[in-house]
Simulated assay, not measured.
Amino acid sequence: MPFLAADIGGTHARVALMRASRDGAHGVETLAYRVFACREFATLSELLKVFVEEDAQVPVKHCVLACAGQIMGNEVVNDNLAWPIQLTQLRHALSLDHIAVLNDFEALAYALDGALTDDGRHLCGPRSSPGGTTLVIGPGTGLGAAVHVPGPAGGVVLATEAGQMDFAPNSVRERELLAQLAPNGGYVPFEYFVSGPGLLTIYTALCTLRRETPALDTPEAITRAAAANADAIAIEAVEIFCASLGSFTGNLAMAFMATGGVYLAGGFLSSIFELLKHSAFEVRFLHERSARALLLHVPVWVTEHGRHGVQGAAQWYLRHGMAETGVPQSAATCGTSA
């Protein structure tokens, strides 16, 4: 039975019509695929209806969503989503029998046994690993991360909200930026620095510290100016972004003993790969820690997000038997059988 698999981020929604592979290899076939700009739709149900009517062109009764944020009861909670997502409303709007939801980076981690590991570019560390726990991390509209622990039946994937951890400055300049963002102290998450909007935040704060008027107003404009060596503040902003990403990645690699490697996912990082490659990322990833001997043996790759989110979501859905039965085994679900 074909089913919808959608990867819903803060900026883009990637939607596919999928079914279990007919060769019996427990894989998935993509029957239709399309990328949407979330800002062009008033609701998620409106976006998915367009896909079903124009691309799927067959009745669809089952759906799995990979979403940024946390699933709290009947709602997906995240400040970076374009609109609130109510599962019951969505199911009724699309006449679905069943809908399931998992974290978007959890879905990416389920794609680690596929193309996600095949099309990456090596950033630092060895080019191979002895295996073990693997991390998927991605700064985009927000900052996501998930952990894959190997084991029987494909292992276990752990979703996280690591991007919400407190930002820890490493340099005097970063302390100045933190004071600029939170002059009275208080909570500032890593996501405020290590994300697309975070890069813009860094750039704007640097302009304030330098008493200059910001000339750039998007993350893309900042990275273009930095790559062209055309704006000193943009260059510094990208350097701080990359260094902070190195610290964040090293922290998680230590916390989860990620001997299987780290995959930095997303088109944003792919677009600045050369800047990242020549930045302080690796220095901050290793950072003279007591675990340096471990981290020296952790490979780090940059890979495109692409279709991997929908493929991972579909793999999760099939693994839990929902496409056939509609009976939820884990994560959040909503349906006539739930």
Rank of each mutant, 00 (worst) to 15 (best):
residue 284 R to W: 09
residue 225 A to P: 01
residue 219 P to M: 13
residue 260 G to F: 06
residue 227 A to S: 15
residue 285 F to G: 07
residue 243 A to N: 02
residue 221 A to D: 10
residue 216 L to E: 07
residue 264 L to W: 02
residue 294 L to P: 00
residue 276 L to V: 09
residue 280 A to H: 14
residue 277 K to D: 05
residue 236 E to D: 14
residue 283 V to A: 15
residue 297 H to A: 11
residue 224 R to F: 01
residue 271 S to N: 15
residue 286 L to F: 06
residue 250 G to D: 11
residue 271 S to P: 00
residue 247 S to L: 07
residue 278 H to L: 09
residue 243 A to R: 12
residue 295 L to Q: 10
residue 221 A to N: 08
residue 293 A to H: 13
residue 283 V to C: 00
residue 219 P to Y: 09
residue 215 A to L: 10
residue 214 P to H: 05
residue 282 E to Q: 14
residue 262 V to D: 07
residue 263 Y to K: 02
residue 242 C to Q: 04
residue 253 A to C: 10
residue 289 R to S: 12
residue 244 S to H: 08
residue 220 E to G: 07
residue 249 T to R: 01
residue 238 V to H: 07
residue 240 I to E: 13
residue 265 A to C: 07
residue 296 L to W: 00
residue 292 R to Q: 12
residue 269 L to F: 04
residue 292 R to G: 01
residue 272 I to E: 04
residue 276 L to P: 02
residue 234 A to Q: 08
residue 251 N to A: 13
residue 261 G to A: 10
residue 253 A to E: 11
residue 275 L to Q: 15
residue 242 C to L: 04
residue 224 R to D: 14
residue 254 M to H: 01
residue 239 E to L: 05
residue 224 R to T: 13
residue 268 F to G: 07
residue 282 E to N: 08
residue 222 I to G: 11
residue 295 L to I: 10
residue 286 L to G: 05
residue 235 I to E: 15
residue 217 D to Y: 09
residue 262 V to H: 05
residue 259 T to N: 09
residue 257 M to R: 14
residue 247 S to T: 11
residue 288 E to W: 00
residue 233 I to Q: 11
residue 272 I to T: 10
residue 219 P to L: 13
residue 255 A to I: 10
residue 295 L to T: 09
residue 261 G to Q: 05
residue 222 I to N: 12
residue 297 H to T: 14
residue 248 F to K: 13
residue 294 L to W: 09
residue 248 F to D: 13
residue 269 L to I: 03
residue 295 L to M: 11
residue 291 A to F: 13
residue 216 L to T: 03
residue 293 A to Y: 09
residue 278 H to T: 13
residue 252 L to I: 03
residue 237 A to Y: 03
residue 251 N to W: 01
residue 219 P to D: 10
residue 264 L to M: 12
residue 276 L to R: 13
residue 286 L to R: 15
residue 297 H to I: 00
residue 273 F to E: 02
residue 278 H to C: 04
residue 294 L to A: 14
residue 263 Y to H: 12
residue 238 V to F: 04
residue 214 P to R: 02
residue 229 N to F: 02
residue 215 A to R: 14
residue 252 L to K: 05
residue 225 A to I: 07
residue 283 V to P: 00
residue 256 F to G: 08
residue 272 I to Y: 02
residue 259 T to V: 03
residue 296 L to N: 13
residue 286 L to S: 06
residue 252 L to E: 03
residue 228 A to E: 15
residue 290 S to A: 15
residue 275 L to T: 08
residue 284 R to K: 14
residue 259 T to F: 10
residue 274 E to K: 10
residue 264 L to A: 12
residue 228 A to F: 01
residue 236 E to K: 09
residue 261 G to P: 01
residue 294 L to V: 15
residue 270 S to G: 14
residue 268 F to S: 06
residue 288 E to H: 13
residue 280 A to R: 15
residue 268 F to A: 11
residue 226 A to D: 09
residue 272 I to F: 12
residue 245 L to R: 10
residue 236 E to C: 06
residue 219 P to G: 09
residue 264 L to R: 12
residue 289 R to Q: 11
residue 275 L to Y: 05
residue 269 L to R: 03
residue 214 P to K: 04
residue 295 L to V: 12
residue 291 A to D: 10
residue 223 T to G: 08
residue 286 L to C: 08
residue 240 I to R: 12
residue 240 I to G: 07
residue 292 R to V: 11
residue 260 G to N: 08
residue 289 R to G: 02
residue 233 I to S: 12
residue 247 S to K: 09
residue 278 H to N: 14
residue 223 T to D: 09
residue 230 A to C: 05
